[in-house]
Nucleic acid binder design. Structure first.
Lengths: 330, 330
DNA sequence: TTGAAAGCGGTACCAG
DNA sequence: CTGGTACCGCTTTCAA
């Protein structure tokens, strides 16, 4: 089914059908009705590929995330999609599983689809990809990487502050043996968190620590915890790169009959919903995904944010939240 | 950047560039190299919209889910995407949040994009939409709804069996006061589970029960549990429509200082990863998402499944799994 | 208010 | 092995 057939049936030209379908005011009411009737009878659906091609814009935004299974990313996706829909865009989502190769495929795909804006919320970003995207002139937002210019914006969360707060808090509770559970991506922001951890912990002369990494999943968190204990190290506090992995850690501690927080304190990061639902609820650091999603949209669709310049650096401050997974050192 | 420019720079015709880019063997090695060089220099990305339009196929599959935040759906998404990618397709995902209106939008979008196959894994499906999709001749798979024909397949999970096993098991443990926590979608499969619950529980003359519903989320599960207790009913066992909500229920019970399973038994459904990570790990019913994802793909892309007829009914049997959230009635 | 026609960027068939 | 070219379905001037 295409415009031509609808036009034939409605007894008008394809130009008129196009106008009617797109709600362009020029069309007379009676004509419009005839067109819609014909379209309905023929079970007509505008071909969006053709529309994008002819129109020069796809009315689609893209979001690439490292791991949509982790609610942190999904929360951003959700608000971004809502904004997009509200403004007549659709959101194409893609997952990289933290793999550089997949990231490259996703980027090519998004560019190939000629998305009108692209948000890249991944930690494995590499400069050559940023350049690649930059050269296409597609408005883009990167997360914790790259620098603002042209049509590229940049959202930067101050992890360092967050981790510092966590470490300070634990130290004030007399903890001295720390473990850091990260995931495999070596670059920012994990890298940043890890570095921040090292810096913070190094400030205390009596502190001992150990760092382990595993995949960003419940299993990954659990394995990481297992690894720590297998090494013989006995932390009094386990600081996790995010809540998702922390839930895995909690599970392993339960297995080992260690009580949280009496025997070991555990902290997460992100403040995903699950952090409130774990047992015990996690002490964590809140990252405002709503705000990030919103700002991302505004950066991608400048018309939606009058007064705010495109291509800017957006800094987000995290917020420390104490729940029940932390307590005085044993 | 388009074919023409690449052709000019490489000193060949656009037909040749097209062939080279698409790895059609006819092209001579030297020519191919010239083309790729030119393409790289010009930062060329094939316009996928144009390709879909001209080629008559989009090389994309669509998946519409009720709630991608629920790992049940996400697990299916994951394997479907893997299969798709392995076969040169991309997967377009969309979320309905259980809203009929959004479902309709998503369907229109997928048809508009001319996906080569569409999986609709939602519980709020309505017959008119099935017809709509049917008339487009796009191969489709529905979950627990519609009937197999033409190019439409149909995956049906035997929930009834699963719920029956759960209820029987609890009854054998001397439970007699049951609560069922569902989510708001009234149609299959939730409806089916709910009905199955009623049938199963009605078989025992001494059984009492109560049914509540809330949104499919952690919060929804928690609220549902709160609602049960607010009503004055004191169940010895809470049967949840899925694991995701069950985790919310567990949280509320903790709040009420009720021990699981000593004071109350709780069961989930689906067997998502989180079910093993909750405290206590959930007794649940396994639904093989991997298999569902795989079968869905095969139904959508018949070439991938030689020997298997397109448009068939696929029946999946769930499997009862006992963990630690269930025990003898108090 | 409507129609005719020139693209948009590819694909694929037909010649050579 | 390569080039020419007729579409694919829609948007968008330009005229009428």
């Amino acid at each position: 089914m295409n415009l031509k057939e609808v036009a034939k049936r409605a007894g008008v030209s394809i130009a008129t059908v196009s106008r009617a379908i797109n709600n362009i005011p020029l069309v007379k009411g009676a004509t419009r009705r005839r067109v819609f009737k014909a379209a309905a009878e023929l079970n007509y659906f505008p071909n969006l590929n053709a529309r994008s091609l002819a129109g020069g814009r796809s009315r689609a935004l893209g979001m690439i995330a490292s791991n949509l299974e982790n609610p942190f990313f999904f929360d951003i996706f959700r608000v971004l999609e809502n904004r997009a829909r509200a403004h007549g865009y659709e959101l194409l989502a893609a997952n990289t599983d933290y793999q550089a190769e997949q990231l490259e495929r996703c980027v090519d795909l998004m560019i190939g689809r000629r998305v009108d804006g692209l948000a890249v919320i991944v930690s494995e970003m590499d400069p050559h990809l940023i350049r690649k995207i930059d050269e296409t002139d597609i408005p883009a937002v990167f997360y914790d990487v790259g620098s603002a210019k042209h049509r590229m914006s940049n959202i930067r969360v101050r992890y360092k502050n967050g981790i510092e707060r966590v470490v300070e808090y634990l130290h004030s509770l007399q903890h001295s043996r720390f473990a850091f559970v990260g995931h495999h991506s070596v670059l920012c922001p994990t890298g940043e968190r890890q570095t921040a951890f090292l810096e913070a912990v190094s400030r205390y002369s009596n502190a001992e620590w150990r760092i382990v990494a595993n995949e960003d999943s419940l299993d990954g968190g659990r394995s990481a915890a297992r690894e720590i204990f297998a090494s013989g190290f006995r932390p009094t506090a386990i600081i996790c790169v995010n809540d998702f992995m922390a839930v895995g850690v909690l599970r392993e501690l339960r297995e080992q009959k260690l009580r949280v927080p009496e025997d070991v304190s555990v902290t997460g990061f992100d403040n995903i919903k699950l952090a409130e639902y774990s047992s015990p609820p996690l002490t964590t650091v809140h990252i405002p995904r709503d705000r990030i999603g919103l700002l991302t949209f505004e950066a991608l669709v400048p018309e939606s944010a009058i007064g705010k310049p495109p291509g800017r650096e957006i800094v987000v401050d995290p917020e420390f939240i104490v729940r029940e997974s932390t307590g005085p050192a044993p």
